[in-house]
Simulated assay, not measured.
Amino acid sequence: MPRETLDERIDRLESIEDIRQLAGKYSLSLDMRDLDAHVNLFAPDIRVGRDKVGRAHLKAWVDDTLRHQFTGTSHHLGQHIIEFADPDHAIGVVYSKNEHECGREWVLMQMLYWDDYERIDGRWFFRRRLPCYWYASDLNQQPVGDMKMRWPGREPYHGTFHEIFPSWQAFWAQRPDKDSLPEVAAPAPLEGFLKAMRRDAQPPKIRVR
């Protein structure tokens, strides 16, 4: 594999920082309800649902969601893993712990985003942002047990926090032999950690409630 040039390495570092800023801008613009700033973080031809395209449709969807579900929100970002398919396309995983004012209830949520990023005319945008939830529960209720997504006025349902990573199911299905050492797979390549964790599966598709 040819060694990267200095210019390529600098471009990669600048792109990583731009993408991290993109995730931070997403949270701030969403929490402050600046929907124009928010939807402009997405590619101009962003797909919305099955048959709609464009930022105007995304703005309408976000507006409706925020007005009918939450009074206030606060999104707190955690670790951010970014990997490049080529200089203008990347994927990423971002942890997020969020707070939501929902009428008389204060709902805490733990989740991660599976992201696809694209550089268009020199700027990085979200091509797709897939939220994967572990739990959502009132501040005074521990989210233990099954059906951890517990919103006011809705029936509890399963989140998808672990669903896109086959290792979760495989771990609990295994019964280790305590009399022998386990095998260890070879390390993933530099730009292949997330792909390896996905076991080379196709990009995840999860129906978002």
Rank of each mutant, 00 (worst) to 15 (best):
Trp106Asp: 06
Pro44Glu: 13
Glu101Gly: 11
Glu105Ser: 14
Lys59His: 06
Ala56His: 00
Pro87Asn: 06
Phe125Met: 11
His76Gln: 14
His100Ala: 05
Val93Leu: 10
Val62Lys: 03
His89Ser: 15
His75Pro: 07
Trp61Val: 04
His68Cys: 08
Gly72Ser: 11
Leu35Ser: 10
Leu66Thr: 08
His80Ala: 02
Ser29Ala: 14
Glu118Arg: 15
Phe125Lys: 12
Ala90Leu: 12
Val39Asn: 01
Leu112Ala: 02
Arg47Ile: 06
Glu99Phe: 11
Arg47Glu: 08
Arg47Phe: 05
Val107Glu: 00
Leu66Trp: 04
Ile91Cys: 03
Asp36Asn: 05
Ala37Ile: 02
Val93Gly: 07
His57Val: 02
Met32Thr: 12
Trp114Thr: 00
His75Thr: 02
Ala43Gln: 05
Asp45Leu: 07
Leu58Ala: 09
Thr65Arg: 10
Val107Ser: 01
Gly72Arg: 10
Gln79Pro: 08
Arg104Ala: 15
Trp61His: 09
Asp88Trp: 01
Arg104Ser: 15
Gly54Arg: 00
Gly122Asn: 12
Ala43Asn: 02
Gln79Thr: 13
Glu105Met: 10
Arg123Lys: 15
Leu30Thr: 05
Gln69Gly: 00
Asp64Pro: 01
His100Gly: 04
Gly92Ile: 06
Leu66Asp: 11
Ala85Met: 04
Asp51Arg: 08
Leu30Ala: 10
Trp61Lys: 12
Ala85Asp: 09
Leu77Pro: 01
Asp115Gly: 12
Arg67Gly: 00
Asn40Lys: 05
Arg50Phe: 02
Lys52Ser: 13
Leu112Gly: 00
Met111Arg: 09
Lys97Arg: 11
Asp86Ser: 09
Leu30Glu: 09
Ala60Gly: 07
Phe126Thr: 11
Arg33Asp: 00
Leu41Ser: 05
Glu105Gln: 14
Lys59Val: 07
Ile82Arg: 14
Arg119Asp: 04
Leu58Met: 13
Asp31Ser: 04
Asp45Gln: 14
Arg67Cys: 00
Gln110Pro: 08
Ile46Lys: 03
Asp63Arg: 14
Leu30Cys: 07
Arg50Ala: 08
Ile91Glu: 10
Ala90Gln: 06
Glu105Tyr: 11
His68Glu: 13
Phe126Trp: 06
Val53Leu: 02
Ile81Asn: 08
Leu30Gly: 03
Thr65Ser: 09
Ile91Phe: 09
Asp64Phe: 08
Gly92Thr: 09
Lys52Ile: 06
Glu99Leu: 10
Tyr117Ile: 13
Phe70Gln: 01
Thr73Cys: 11
Phe84Val: 07
Lys59Ala: 11
Ile91Thr: 08
Arg119Thr: 02
Ile82Val: 15
Tyr113Phe: 15
Ala43Phe: 01
His89Asp: 15
Lys52Asn: 12
Met32Trp: 06
Pro44Val: 01
Thr73Val: 02
Gly78Thr: 09
Leu35Gly: 05
Gly78Tyr: 14
Asn98Met: 11
Arg47Asn: 04
Met109Thr: 15
Val39Gln: 02
Glu118Val: 12
Glu101Thr: 11
Lys59Phe: 05
Gly78Ile: 10
Val94Thr: 14
Asp31Trp: 04
Lys52Thr: 12
Ala60Ile: 02
Leu77Ser: 05
Asp88Glu: 14
Asp31Tyr: 04
His38Lys: 01
Glu99Val: 09
Ser29His: 13
Trp61Cys: 03
Leu30Gln: 03
Asp34Ala: 03
Gly72Met: 06
Cys102Tyr: 00
Ile81Thr: 14
Leu108Ala: 03
His89Gln: 14
Arg33Gln: 04
Ile81Lys: 13
Asp36Ser: 02
